[in-house]
Design a protein around this nucleic acid. Structure first.
Lengths: 206, 206
DNA sequence: CATATAATGAGACGATCGTCTCGTGTCAAG
DNA sequence: CTTGACACGAGACGATCGTCTCATTATATG
């Protein structure tokens, strides 16, 4: 039984996976939902191979735009000495707002696929089906004032801000309320400031 | 050219449309996305007819669960003499919360279809593609205290609460934050109360 | 370099989608 | 009751989905 250590080939797998995600991201830019065949062709890969990496089209579309349109949050607070959490959270929301509204088409496709996929997998075993970029951003914004919050208040505030930060609120403003981008930004700016202030007040009172 | 007034037959059209929506709502209860053929069969209608009423499957699924799971909001404040907007908004959110989490599967399908459909129709002409049940509910909750808000503050508060009330926040809590239903309700309860309070303060100050 | 093994390509398969045409049934005005 | 307009049913069509099998290529190790 001359067993040989199986070849790793992890680099090859990583590259083809990345090629697929990149191709999907490119094709989603214009808001057109690409068929898996289109993505595979753009990635110079056969259809069968694409299905070896992603169980369905949605799973592929979920990962695509996130990698493409991910700005560098670090630069947001880099040359900035502001400590005021209200100010920092508002600025972070502004950046997230821009990113979401600039990539609305692609993000809609991602969100749609994500929501449907989670519904399908409710009965099966859970899957890490969605990334979370907003929590790190929120935490970075709150970091300098971290000690001014009680722990419970901090966690509650963080969760509440997550409702406002993401792409879901964009859907509310556009599809439900039919409000324009500027109004949306104004409402969110007011809301995040009010929430930060409330959490601060409750933390220092008593 | 003997022209005769064309037969109305609007009742027939209304019934088949309603039959299709009802059938879709029934099939979506368990979270399984029904194929259009399944819906048509359940509605005792041919596939071709279903396509005569809805351009695609998503358009059908968007309208279904809303009609099915729409409680009577009026009863919420019927035997209630509370005037405090904070209390009323919190109670309204609790009701919406229950409705959304009880029908999570169907609402996910609706939301997914709605978000994707809006993306597709971005280039074409706008379409009334989504109903808005939360705004009337929010307005009913704020009604008794309506005069205590300045107009701008009222509109801003109403929009901010819409972010928290709907099904979108459920997606945030479940898929992004991975928090359980109880925690979600607690966070939202705190947030809506804080927002109402902030809007009130800003309205009476100055 | 040689080779076992992993990664890929090619393509068939049934199911569903969305569109189309044509024939039948049915309502309601005259 | 008659009849014209309308709703409906049946079914074909190509496109895409997701799964499968089998052959071919590429890679890392000895």
């Amino acid at each position: 039984m001359s067993k040989r250590k199986p070849p790793e080939r992890s680099n090859q797998r990583y590259r083809t996976r990345k090629d697929l995600i990149d191709a999907a991201g490119r094709l989603m830019k214009n808001g057109h939902k690409p068929s898996l065949e289109e993505v595979a062709e753009a990635a110079r890969v056969s259809r069968a191979t694409a299905y070896r990496y992603f169980p369905n089209v949605e799973a592929l579309l979920v990962e695509a735009p996130l990698d493409t349109a991910a700005p560098d949050w670090d630069a947001l607070f880099a040359g900035d000495a502001s400590i005021d959490p209200e100010e920092r959270v508002d600025r972070a929301e502004a950046a997230m707002h821009r990113m979401v509204f600039d990539n609305e088409a692609a993000i809609r496709l991602m969100l749609s696929a994500s929501v449907a996929r989670a519904a399908r997998e409710t009965d099966g075993e859970a899957v890490p089906y969605r990334q979370n970029r907003r929590t790190p951003l929120i935490e970075a914004a709150l970091a300098p004032a971290r000690t001014r919050f009680k722990k419970a208040n901090y966690n509650r505030l963080r969760a509440a801000l997550a409702m406002i930060f993401g792409s879901e609120s964009m859907v509310v403003f556009r599809d439900v309320l039919r409000l324009d981008e500027k109004t949306a930004r104004a409402v969110k700016s007011w809301a995040v400031r009010a929430l930060v202030r409330a959490a601060l007040d409750e933390s220092q009172a008593q």
